[in-house]
Every structure is written in C-alpha cells, then in structure tokens.
C-alpha cells in the first residue's frame, strides 16, 4: 500500500518518458520497416546499396576512433597530473576544464573558427580533428580522473617497496588499475563523435569530403517524406552503435567494480 502511494509520485515521470522516449523509438522501428504498402526491407536496401553511405560509415568510425585516442592521450596526463602529483585545488582545475562544455557548441565552434582564421588553419581534416579533440576532451578527462583518484596509494607504495622502478610502477600498477576509466572515457566520447553533424560540416569544409554519419542523417531529414524511411534506418544504425558501446562499457565497469573502479 505504502509502495503504491510512493509509486504515484513517479507517475508523471513514467508517462512523460513513455511518450517522449519509448514511443518515438518505437516509431523509428515502425518507419524503418514500413512503407505505404506495408512491411518492407526497402529502406535498408536503399541505405546499404548506397556506396556513399558505406564510405561515410567507415570514415565516421575511423575519425571517431582517432579523435577518441588523441583525447585519451591528452586527457590521461592531465588526470594523472591532477590526481598523482599532489595538486592543490584540483577540483577547481577540473571545473575549469568542464566549464566550456556548458556553453553553446555553435558559439564555441564559431569562436574556434575565428581563431583558426587568425592563425590560418583552413577547414578540412586538421580543423575537424582539432575541433573534435577540443570539444570532447573534458568528457574524456572525467572518468580517468575518477578512476585514478580512487586508486589506493598503498598499491603504489607496495610496488615501490617491492623494488619496482617508477616506470614499472606506472606500467604494471597504475595503468592496469586505470583501465576501466580509459575504456569508459573512450566509449563516452566515441558515440557523440560518430554522430556529430555540426562539427563535421562546419570544420570539414562544408562539402562531402569529411561528411560524417550524423550529417547523412541530417540530409535525410531535410529531404522530407522521402527521407523518413532512410533516416529511420540510419537512426537505428546509430542506436545500435551507441547501444553496443554501452554494453561493452557495462561489461568492463563490472570488472572495474571488483577492483574499485569507476561505477
């Protein structure tokens, strides 16, 4: 009885989420598999027979992996420096890293373009890569920071006492212990990068040279009625990519929990 009374408080939330999340996702499936004549695989055939779609899918994947790896290479030393070298005011520094993330992506991007104009970087691959890294770096830092902060310093002292050189302490103790954070960070940035569409069109030069998956979906949406079916199929592809990465993340974070990991 008490339980029911409490559950009533959650009712508006449940109704709202059913209408705004669950039902629209069902609609995606509906439009992906139907046309005016009923059930069909035609939209899937349209998308997968299109060479451009494959090229863009491949490009999105490798650009996302490359950008995510660069983010990790920059984020790791930052997180390591903040947690392991006795920094004071480290939460303030962390806040400084995350602050720009809250300001508008478009405004930030246009500001960055202005900087590029000032130092003469033309739109294209490098501009796109730099913009992706600058934009997604904060999200990469957070999980690594949390994991490194949770590492018991006694482990490090123990391996030092047992004769490990500083390098060995890092490769054999710190790095393996922070693996869950690295994987979490990678996945957290991978899915938004794969689906980005403003950055790739704005820094990629506007043409089709550096077009990515999100932009392809955007084009379908702009195409109106003809695009609904294909757009739904592309949405489902993105949904599956993101879903897969979350599943992988969950697997690893379970491993992480046993060793005092991220979640």
């Amino acid at each position: 009885m008490v339980r029911k009374k409490y559950a009533l408080f959650a009712a508006p939330f449940i109704i709202f989420m059913l209408m705004m999340v669950v039902f629209p996702l069902c609609l995606l499936f509906w439009y992906a598999f139907t046309s005016d004549d009923g059930f069909t695989f035609q939209h899937f055939r349209d998308v997968f027979n299109d060479n451009i779609a494959w090229t863009i899918l491949g490009r999105s994947l490798w650009i996302a992996i490359l950008a995510a790896v660069i983010c990790l290479l920059i984020a790791y030393p930052i997180a390591y420096g903040l947690t392991m070298t006795g920094f004071k005011r480290r939460t303030t520094i962390l806040l400084l890293f995350t602050l720009p993330m809250w300001t508008n992506l478009l405004l930030r991007s246009i500001a960055l373009r202005n900087l590029f104009i000032l130092v003469d970087i033309t739109p294209g691959f490098w501009a796109l890569l730099i913009s992706l890294v600058v934009n997604f770096l904060p999200i990469t830092i957070l999980p690594i920071y949390i994991v490194l902060g949770n590492i018991d310093k006694k482990h490090l002292e123990a391996s030092q006492d047992l004769g490990a050189t500083p390098r060995k302490v890092f490769t054999k103790t710190v790095l393996p212990l922070s693996m869950p954070g690295i994987i979490a960070a990678f996945i957290l940035v991978f899915s938004p990068i794969v689906s980005t569409y403003f950055l790739s069109s704005f820094f990629g030069g506007g043409g089709s040279d550096w077009r990515m998956l999100g932009e392809l979906l955007n084009i379908q949406y702009r195409a109106g009625d003809i695009g609904v079916g294909r757009g739904s199929v592309l949405s489902l592809i993105l949904l599956v990519l993101v879903g897969l990465s979350v599943l992988i993340l969950n697997r690893f974070s379970k491993v992480g929990n046993k060793r005092g990991g991220l979640w």
Binding site: A10, F13, I14, M17, M19, M20, V21, V22, F23, P24, L25, L27, L28, Y31, S191, P192, V194, S195, Y197, G214, L217, N218, Y221, V228, G231, S232, S235, L238, L239, V242, V246
Partner: peptide, 27 residues
C-alpha cells in the same frame, strides 16, 4: 528500469532523439 529509462536520452545520440521526436510530433 526507471534509471535505464532516465539514461536512455542521455546516452542516445542527440540527433537520433531529434529525429524520433520529429516522427512523434508528425504522428
């Protein structure tokens, strides 16, 4: 289940949410 429901729009690609809402409002 509630938490999963809550996290879905956060984890999902924004553009997919946007597109699915277009379908919702049209429907």
């Amino acid at each position: 289940v509630m938490m999963a429901l809550n996290l879905t729009p956060m984890i999902n690609a924004t553009i997919v949410t946007a597109f699915s809402l277009v379908l919702l409002y049209a429907t």
